[in-house]
Structures are given as C-alpha cells and as structure tokens.
Amino acid sequence: MAAIDLILIIMLLLTSLWTVLTIRLIRAVVGLALTSAILSVIMFRLGSPLAAVFELSVCSGLISVIFVTTISFTSRVSKERLFVRRRERFVKFWYLPLILIVAGFLLLHFSHPPALKLPVTPAGQDVRSVLWNLRHPDLLGQVIVLLAGAFGVAILFKEDTHER
C-alpha cells in the first residue's frame, strides 16, 4: 500500500469524523462534501475514474446543495441555543474518537484477515459498454427512480409555495 493511499484513507476517516463531531449543521455539510471529494480521489486511484467524476460532481456537489437548501429553510438557531447545543454535543459525542481508536486498535491487533480467494474474472471491459450493454435492468431502474423523484418533487415541494 503506497503511502499516499494511506494518507488519503486516514484523511477520509478524519473528515467523516469532523462531519459527525462539528456543531453547526452547515459545517457538517461541508465536511460531507470534503469526505466525498477525498473519496473520489481514492476511487480514481483505485482505477475507477468515471465513477469518481460522478461522485465528485453529484455527491459533493448536488447533495451539498440539497442539504444547504434544506438547512437554510429550517434551522434558525439563536446564540444561546447554540451554546447549549455545543455543551450537549460535547457530552454526547466525545466517546466517538475513543470508540474509533479502540475499535481500530482491536481490529489491527486482535483479529486476522479473513481468507480471501479472489475469483477469476473476464479481462477488463469498459465501464460504458458494461453500463449500456449489460446493465439494462439498472438503467430502467434509474429511469423509474427519477420518475418517482419527479413525483416526489411535484408533491412535496409544489404545494409548498401554493399554500403560502
């Protein structure tokens, strides 16, 4: 394992930890976007460039937009509430880094890697040909999911403005 990969995966863990631990929701969303971005670099290093582009643009772009929109409509937190919440959060969440360290230590030292027999697979194909020639059910599924999502938007968002 090259050093750069180790650094990347440790950074991935740290950003996701920050996402969980940080107090303001907006920062959590930024942390999530960062996690996504680092994940896409790892995906690129693992030989999946197309999926990495998708991850970068959709997950760290579009999903952050969705979250930021939702948050800007919902949370209006006063200074005092924020202070209370910070204390609550400190009490509630300080276990998490400990749990992670202990779990990581245990996994590294007290368990053995499971036996792994890798299957023989056909020689590398192109993702485009796989997606468009072999995964037809998934394509159909994607289209139906998008249709369902369109109904979701039409039902959950449209009457919102109408009633105000």
Partner: peptide
C-alpha cells in the same frame, strides 16, 4: 413486478429502492 422477475442482486436492490421511494411519498 421487476423485483419478482429479476435475476441480479444489484437490480433487486435498485427495484426495491424504486418501491421504497414511491412508498415514502
């Protein structure tokens, strides 16, 4: 219908999600 006929584990997941999303709404 698709779940009842598919022969692929990932497609199974995709169509289960289709049902689930329609049901949330």
């Amino acid at each position: 219908n698709a779940v009842a006929m598919t022969t692929d584990l990932f497609s199974l997941y995709v169509f289960l999600e289709v049902c689930a999303i329609a049901l949330f709404i």
